[in-house]
């Protein structure tokens, strides 16, 4: 090859083909997707919690895309039905994830609806699942001698509770837990939406 213009134009054409296949076509195909009726937008607090989820990098251990029953037993683990594009209508940025060091969280709000459990688990996962390799996030909590009015005290199993004082959740932790509780996509979807 002796001609740099052929090289560069050829390279641009192949890239254009690639972008049309994986970006432009999906863009037009998915543009008209509507949210399922039962799906609610995130509240401001949940949206802040979602931001916290991004900050702490939960996505590197948790996916949000249960697989179809024909492929894997995700539904049997309580992770939920296979999602449709509409389920992600309010998700910006997407948090599908490609790793399952921990379980899928697309329906964690339905599976663990207790905010006390969520906060305690974020503070110290091993208090609830002995062999867990999830890190705790103690910096999202405060150790206080006494809870003040309006403080959210974390109830921990006795072996993990501090000897003195109480563990109080910071607003970041509460927002994160509320976001987790909002992850509930168990509503049924019409068959048509399932078709891809």
């Amino acid at each position: 090859m002796e001609n740099e213009f052929k090289l560069i134009s050829g390279a641009l054409v192949t890239l254009a083909v690639s972008a049309s296949a994986l970006v432009v076509l999906p863009y037009f195909q998915l543009q008209s997707v509507q949210p399922p009726q039962k799906l609610k937008d995130y509240s401001p607090e949940e949206a802040r919690g979602r931001q916290q989820y991004i900050s702490e990098g939960c996505v590197y251990c948790h996916s949000q895309q249960p697989r179809d029953a024909s492929q894997a037993p995700d539904a049997k683990r309580g992770w939920g039905r296979a999602p449709v594009p509409g389920d992600y209508y309010y998700d910006k940025p997407h948090l599908l994830g490609t790793m399952r060091t921990g379980p899928d969280l697309f329906n964690i709000g339905a599976r663990q609806p207790s905010i006390d459990w969520q906060l305690g688990h974020l503070y110290q996962p091993r208090a609830y699942t002995p062999n867990s390799i999830m890190p705790g996030f103690p910096y999202l909590f405060e150790l206080k001698a006494q809870a003040a009015a309006g403080d959210k005290v974390v109830t921990l199993p006795p072996a993990f509770a501090p000897a003195k004082g109480v563990i109080v959740a910071k607003p970041e932790a509460i927002a994160l837990a509320k976001y987790l509780l909002s992850l509930d996509h168990t509503y049924p979807i019409p068959d048509a939406a399932q078709a891809k």
Partner: peptide
């Protein structure tokens, strides 16, 4: 140049994305 540009969908196998892709 041609094939590599179009392999990205293999990171989303089983995901909620268009099947053809």
């Amino acid at each position: 140049a041609f094939f590599y540009g179009q392999v990205g969908g293999h990171h989303l196998i089983g995901g909620p994305v268009p099947e053809w892709m």
